[in-house]
Design a binder for these strands. Structure first.
Length: 347
DNA sequence: AACCCGGGGAC
DNA sequence: GTCCCAGGGTT
């Protein structure tokens, strides 16, 4: 398979993607940001977030000097919020220890928070023209199909093999490594798609085992199924005047660092909670509801009580705050919380 | 090796 | 509803 790299580089010239916002640059800051946002996230989803982000944080020093809260605000809705926290940590580290210049060393890149082997490989190729392999969902799909690998690509032993294949298939020189790397991603995204691959347009079809044996439906093998556990949480949506009451999530766990609603074990103690934390007896229950959402590893049923208070008194707790309705759109809230608030009737 | 971590696009 | 996406970190 020594000529795959040449064919891919040639194919990319006429048929690859050339106009994504993070292309046509070697600025490691812009490339790094795009790679982090694109982890487990589709291009179409990233586009608007990326543009907003570079407008607000044009360079790494500005990002490093920002409050983590502000970074999370621009990440709100994108998910996997550890990416945003690690992004901020890395910006601070580079600003401090590398004079705000991205390190070109692969090992130093790999040591930074949020940058794993594949992301370090992509940054190395795109920003520094270094010959390093990547192994994302696209590459896994292209290689498992091309070679007829029938096992799930996420299985550790298979993944190890795929890294070796990705390394072995790199171009001989680093001259076109950025084109090659982009070509692999583009082929996976536009031709070697998960469903309905466009095999007739594929530059690799003459030697692709899945194409020749008609295995593109079976390969790549899907992840082994597991029944997801269901979690129930109980939230108090407390409204007073033009604001809602929020509670900051802990630094670990789901939605870490974001703002959610006060959470109870159940609704038996609602009155006590309001008395203890807001020193208020007089409240009105406006609505009771339920919202379902689902994550990679569990399902979540959010139960909520929508409560109205006449006065917004001072809180005892320091991890709570009121947020005005007009500010919700730009606050660091998880998507389901924003959705629930949008369904509530105005008081 | 298994689990944790979001949200949405495409079907 | 299902599956998976330019994966990384933790245990």
């Amino acid at each position: 398979m020594g000529f795959i790299s040449d064919q891919l580089i040639q194919w990319h010239k006429t048929s690859g993607r050339h106009n994504l916002p993070w292309q046509n640059t070697h600025d490691p800051y812009l490339i790094w940001l795009s790679e982090i946002m694109l982890q487990q996230t589709q291009v179409t989803t990233v586009l608007t977030y990326y543009k907003k982000f570079i407008k607000r944080f044009p360079d790494i020093d500005i990002l490093a000097n920002a409050e983590e809260e502000k970074v999370l605000e621009l990440w709100s809705g994108l998910g996997y919020y550890a990416r945003a926290r690690n992004l901020h940590k890395t910006a601070i580290e580079i600003s401090k220890n590398y004079d705000a210049k991205f390190p070109s060393s692969f090992d130093r890149l790999l040591s930074l928070p949020g940058i794993g082997r594949s992301t370090a490989g992509a940054i190395s190729a795109f920003a520094f023209k270094k010959k390093k392999p990547i192994l994302d969902g696209n590459v896994k799909r292209v290689f498992t199909r091309y070679l007829g690998i029938k096992e799930w690509a996420g299985k550790p032993s298979v993944e190890k093999e795929l890294w070796e294949i990705a390394t072995r298939n790199l171009p001989k020189t680093n001259k076109h490594i950025h084109t090659y790397t982009q070509a692999l991603m583009d082929l996976g995204a536009t031709i070697c798609r998960r469903t309905q691959p466009l095999c007739n347009n594929c530059p690799l079809k003459s030697k692709c085992i899945s194409f020749k044996k008609n295995l593109t439906k079976e390969i790549p093998a899907s992840k082994p199924k597991k029944t997801l556990p269901i979690n129930e949480i109980y939230l108090l949506i407390i409204n007073s005047r033009d604001s809602y009451l929020f509670e900051k999530k802990p630094s670990k766990g789901i939605w870490a660092g974001l703002w959610s609603m006060p959470e109870l074990e159940n609704f038996k103690n609602t009155a006590n909670w309001i008395k203890e934390n807001l020193n208020e007896d007089d409240y009105k229950m406006l609505e009771i509801g339920k919202h379902k959402t689902s994550f990679t590893h569990y399902k979540l049923n959010i139960h909520f009580q929508y409560i109205f208070l006449n006065s917004s008194k001072l809180l005892k707790t320091d991890n709570c705050k009121w947020i005005k309705k007009s500010s919700l759109k730009n606050a660091a809230l998880p998507s389901p919380i924003k959705k629930i608030l949008n369904t509530l009737k105005d008081v």
